[in-house]
Each structure stands twice: as C-alpha cells, then as structure tokens.
Amino acid sequence: MTTTYAALLRGINVGGSRKVPMAELRALLADLGHGDVRTYLQSGQAVFSSAHGDEQSLADGIAAAIEKHFGFGVDVIVRDHAYLKAIAEGCPFPAAGLEPKQLHVTYFSAPVTPDRFAGIDRGAHLPEEFRLGDRALYLYAPDGLGRSKLAEQLAKPRITRGLVATTRNWNTVLKLVELTDD
C-alpha cells in the first residue's frame, strides 16, 4: 500500500541562493523510487507517493539525495495527508475569516513543548499570537510574516535548537492537504 506525502524543504530558492529547480527535484524524487511526484511553487514543496511509510527515513533519504545532487544540505520534513489535514482542521484561529497572509504554520521535525516558548512575552506582541499543535505552531500575524516581531522571536535558535522548522502560509497549508489527498 502506498501513501501520499508532502516533502517540505527549508530555505531553498530564496534570495538567489541554494537553487533547487523544481524539475530537477521531481526527477530526483522519482529516481529515489517515489511515484506520482509533483511540486508546488518554487519554495520547496513536493508531493509524492511511497510504500515506505517512515516519514523520518523518507526525509533523511531526500535530504541526502539533495546534498549529493546539488552540493549543499537542505533540511527536509516529510508528512502524510492525514497529518496535514489534521493540522489544517485543528487551526485554533478563525482561518476562514482571515487573509492567508495573516496565518502561518511552522512545521517541526519533532514535538515541541510550551517550555521552549516560556521566554516570549506574548502580551508584548499582541495582536500577534501563536498556539502550539502536533509538531506544529500556528502563527497569527495580522500584518503578515515579513512585519511580524513575534515571528522573529519564534525563529530564534533557543526556540528551534535541535529541530528542523519550516514555515508555510495558510494557502500553502491548504494546498498541501489538497495535493496529498489520495
């Protein structure tokens, strides 16, 4: 039995560096034996099917292949449709009433606990807010991610230490649910 997954690549095709052309990424994933390979946007989302079943080993295999092919390391998170759908459905903010640029999800490679965020003064950043989910963080940033002071705090190394973390806007969150739906 095969499962459809999304691979989330962190920090590629940004500012002219770490270029990963999507056609090459699709070919690379197909060469790894994955089926039904598609990409979404240029910012590092690929969808594929695999009978493998272990998200971490899939992510490790993709990361190793990218490093071998392109000559630089890329952090990769792999998640299946059920997880992506649960994240979208579990949003603690009124997503339907917000602009997609106002809502983001940071996916983590492992579970995160509230103690990682204890040093953040939540009141100082209002109306921006964040909430934790299953290996994810939901961020409401009414003026967008680029202007978010809270997002700056959430990206500090003391918060993300030992984890792979990559953020997607709400449009991408929903599109990945759609693309991974068998």
Rank of each mutant, 00 (worst) to 15 (best):
T3C: 11
L9F: 02
N13Q: 11
G16P: 07
G16K: 05
S17E: 13
V20M: 05
R26Q: 12
A27M: 03
A30C: 08
D36A: 09
T39M: 11
L41N: 01
S43Y: 02
V47Y: 11
V47Q: 09
F48G: 13
S49M: 08
S49N: 09
S49R: 15
A51S: 15
D54R: 15
A59M: 07
A59P: 10
D60E: 14
D60R: 13
I62R: 04
I62D: 03
A63V: 06
H69C: 00
H69N: 02
G73S: 15
V74R: 01
V74I: 08
I77K: 13
I77T: 14
H81R: 04
A82T: 15
L84I: 05
A86I: 04
A86T: 07
I87Y: 10
C91G: 06
P92G: 00
F93C: 03
P94V: 09
P94Y: 10
G97F: 01
E99Y: 00
E99L: 07
P100R: 10
T106S: 13
Y107A: 07
F108I: 02
S109Q: 10
A110I: 03
A110Y: 06
P111K: 02
V112P: 06
T113C: 00
D115K: 09
R116Q: 13
R116P: 06
R116C: 13
F117N: 03
A118R: 15
R122I: 00
A124C: 00
H125G: 07
L126K: 15
L132V: 10
D134I: 02
D134S: 10
D134Q: 12
D134G: 03
L139D: 11
Y140F: 15
A141W: 04
A141S: 14
D143E: 15
L145Y: 15
G146I: 00
K149C: 01
A151H: 14
E152I: 12
Q153F: 01
A155I: 01
K156D: 01
R158N: 08
L163R: 14
L163E: 14
T166A: 09
N169E: 08
T172L: 07
L174C: 15
L176P: 03
D181V: 06
